[in-house]
């Protein structure tokens, strides 16, 4: 066995690692799940998107997310596959919620795991940007002036 022989990776069903769901998710559980795939993981980077109470100067009271069932999941699975193929990472998990979301609640989670931190940082940043770019998910913000569908992504 060579010195740089990669540690064996345990395959976990993609449906556990890539999810679009109404209910909240546990960051701890998703990180544990990703870490369980390989003992070669030495760095885990987590991106958590949460419901913010202000947008363009308006106070937001609540959020509501709509997605294209089927297509949104397919796009997220594709992003995970491309992240694993194009970055030097071992595993990635992605979870996005839909339906009503209160201010401060979790919206989206990306977990990227690699041997060394830089690969996980880069893959995580790329994945959330790609998610915003190509995944059919839409946010509606409830403000005192009414409901607004958000049509631009910063």
């Amino acid at each position: 066995m060579g010195l740089n022989m990669p540690t064996k990776k345990k395959t976990i069903d993609a449906s556990a690692l890539v999810r679009i769901q109404k209910e909240n998710f546990s960051i701890e559980e998703m990180v544990s799940l990703v870490k369980s795939t390989s003992k070669g993981i030495g760095a885990v980077v987590v991106f958590l998107g949460a419901g913010r109470d202000v947008s363009k100067g308006e106070t937001i009271t609540m959020l509501d997310f709509e997605h294209y069932p089927g297509m949104a999941e397919k796009k997220l699975r594709g992003i995970r596959e491309r992240a694993i193929a194009n970055f030097n990472i071992i595993e990635m998990a992605m979870v996005h919620r839909f339906g009503p979301i209160e201010i401060g609640e979790n919206i989206v989670l990306i977990v990227a795991a690699s041997a060394h931190r830089n690969d996980a940082f880069m893959a995580c940043e790329w994945a959330i940007t790609e998610l915003k770019r190509i995944t059919p998910i839409w946010k509606r913000e409830m403000t005192a002036k009414g409901d607004v569908w958000v049509s631009e992504t910063p």
């Binding site: 915003k132 059919p136 998910i137 839409w138 946010k139 631009e152 992504t153």
Partner: peptide
């Protein structure tokens, strides 16, 4: 799957009209 104006749509197909995304 994303399509263009020249893409063909036939019987049984599902077409989505997708405004700018704002997930994440």
């Amino acid at each position: 799957e994303f399509a263009s104006k020249d893409s063909v749509v036939k019987d049984g197909d599902e077409v989505g009209l997708l405004p700018p995304f704002s997930g994440g």
